[in-house]
Amino acid sequence: MIINNLKLIREKKKISQSELAALLESSRQTINGIEKNKYNPSLQLALKIAYYLNTPLEDIFQWQ
């Protein structure tokens, strides 16, 4: 199971779900699903999230 700190990191950087979704060329619903652990992002999307949040991938997503 993958757990994530996306919501915590996103809020700390003062970025809304909609703003992050626009940067990622994704939907706000996708970001919401990832944050609620209802959806696991593809590797490509996970890497883009890490890039746009300027945060190491392993700080956002962790195996448990």
Rank of each mutant, 00 (worst) to 15 (best):
A46N: 01
K36T: 15
F61L: 02
Q62Y: 07
E19N: 10
A50D: 02
S42E: 05
E11N: 09
I49F: 02
R10G: 03
K12Y: 10
P41A: 04
I3L: 14
L6H: 03
S18K: 14
W63C: 06
S27W: 05
Y39V: 14
N37Q: 08
A22E: 12
A21C: 04
E58C: 13
P56N: 08
L43T: 07
L23V: 11
D59G: 07
E35C: 05
N4L: 09
A46C: 08
S42A: 05
N32G: 08
K12L: 13
K14R: 12
Y39K: 11
F61C: 03
L47V: 12
L47S: 09
K7G: 07
Y39E: 10
N32S: 13
L20I: 04
L47I: 13
P41V: 10
F61V: 00
Y39G: 05
K36H: 13
Q62E: 09
D59N: 09
K13T: 06
L23Q: 09
L53K: 00
Y51R: 09
T30Q: 10
T30L: 15
T55H: 07
I3P: 02
I60G: 00
A50R: 01
E35H: 02
I49C: 02
E35S: 03
N40T: 15
K7D: 04
K12W: 08
K48P: 00
E19C: 11
T30K: 10
A21W: 03
I9M: 07
N5P: 00
R10L: 09
I2T: 09
N4A: 03
L47A: 10
K14W: 06
L8N: 14
K38R: 13
N37A: 07
N54S: 11
Q29I: 10
I9N: 02
R10D: 03
L6S: 02
I60N: 00
S16E: 04
K12V: 09
W63A: 03
L23F: 12
L57H: 01
D59F: 09
K36M: 14
L6M: 10
E58I: 09
I60T: 01
K14C: 11
Y39A: 09
T55V: 12
S16I: 05
Q64K: 13
R28G: 07
R28C: 11
L8Y: 11
G33V: 07
K14H: 11
L6E: 04
Y39L: 14
S16K: 08
Y39N: 07
N4M: 06
R10N: 02
Q29K: 14
P41L: 07
Q29Y: 10
Q17Y: 08
L23C: 11
G33K: 15
Y39P: 02
Q62P: 08
P41I: 09
K12P: 01
N5W: 09
